[in-house]
Nucleic acid binder design. Structure first.
Lengths: 219, 219
DNA sequence: TTTTATTTTTAGCCTTGACTAAAAATATAT
DNA sequence: ATATATTTTTAGTCAAGGCTAAAAATAAAA
């Protein structure tokens, strides 16, 4: 149906639209795909002719409904395969991205239908990102700082604001990494410190830690 | 490491060498890959430079040890994925070939290691073909074509030579699959057709069917 | 052994998806 | 408003992997 390159462009543009909405610039696409702006211009012209996005020279691009459908389908496949790799083959969350980048391009409706069922129709991938349904609908999730979430709420760690070795080593020591589920058990208004639960452990963290950890809450 | 096209050529050449040993001709490769002889010449010249096969103009090609290693590795991946599709995703054996043709090109040593373990290190794929080990060694099986066995002999179906959906669906209709016991009740010398017994049913099969079914005879 | 047929290769062209270098449009600063 | 900087596009190349048509080598037949 679509080439590997086309699918990768649509996916990248979808992510850019999602992150900073509005039209997506040629340069932004080039940077996110580690390619040159001139190559991007070529490709978006082709995708424009195929009605997968709207393109006007010098004005950026915007996916059409059709383009979005293709993009979310690729993302759905990527995330389902990530679940497979982690849940069934016991990969660690940080090893699966590259492999899923390849698997997401396998063409077979039936395969994905069955894979989804085999995995128990998961709603989130191992990094906490939502898996689009077969119509491309994405559950809305929000990325917040841990410091912003309330007592008794849960979140999945999706990233760090600061990435100094000291901070990362601290997280390691506390067994926190991307994908780790964190529950806020208590919150001190005076200094913003928290008591949190990670796995079976409960412990205290300072506001400084909480304001450098991104979490995704999933209602 | 190697491109999709290169892997497909090496795989096709490996199968041709295996079926009719000796040098493999340009035309034979072209036919088996449904491409043109001129395209084959181009590619085998490149593969020759990469020491994956030996090539002398007008004299056919022969895989080097290295070329065989690459080919058997692709075949190993193909067959492991077929087992996955049938055993885990409940695909039928006639639906898996096309999908495995795509999956066999996914690049990740670790993935195949883990997939193999997940599947319980199977020795045969759903069509009865042996799965090469990680060093490329193929188990030799003592199998004959049904067309080669004599009247009143019995055999167990262990695989198929051709694996087109049409053929596999025919076998299904006749309730023949891997493990099915077949008895040859009669054999017509003129056209090679047979009367066979499968379960309680007795029926007629043509030579074309008999020469595409592998069986293991049990004295 | 010629002649004819078949197989294989060469030469030249096409498409995809990259690239560089230069030109054009837009945005920013004086 | 003009000059400068930035972004985007165009034009021209390149490699991979196909193709067709024609030439060359080998094999088969007279």
């Amino acid at each position: 149906m679509f080439t590997l390159a086309e699918e990768n462009y649509l996916k990248a543009i979808f992510h850019l639209e999602h992150d900073f909405h509005g039209e997506v610039s040629t340069n932004a696409i080039a940077e996110s795909m580690e390619t040159k702006p001139s190559s991007v211009t070529d490709m978006v012209q082709k995708l424009g002719e195929k009605k997968l996005l709207t393109y006007k020279r010098y004005k950026g691009v915007k996916l059409t409904a059709e383009g979005k459908k293709v993009a979310t389908n690729v993302i759905r496949k990527h995330r389902l395969w990530e679940v497979f790799l982690v849940e069934k083959l016991n990969f660690h969350w940080d090893e699966v991205h590259e492999i899923a980048e390849q698997l997401e391009h396998i063409q077979s409706e039936e395969l994905i239908l069955r894979l989804d069922k085999f995995l128990g129709s998961p709603e989130f991938d191992p990094h906490g990102d939502p898996i689009p349904d077969k119509h491309g609908v994405l559950k809305r999730t929000e990325k917040k700082l841990l410091s912003e979430i309330d007592k008794n709420q849960k979140g999945v760690c999706v990233g760090v604001k600061e990435s100094s070795p000291e901070f990362l080593q601290y997280l390691d020591k506390k067994k926190i990494s991307i994908g780790t589920k964190i529950t806020v058990l208590g919150k001190e208004f005076f200094d913003g410190s928290m008591i949190i639960q990670v796995g079976r452990e409960q412990f205290f963290i300072s506001h400084k830690i909480a304001e450098n950890l991104y979490v995704q809450t999933q209602e």
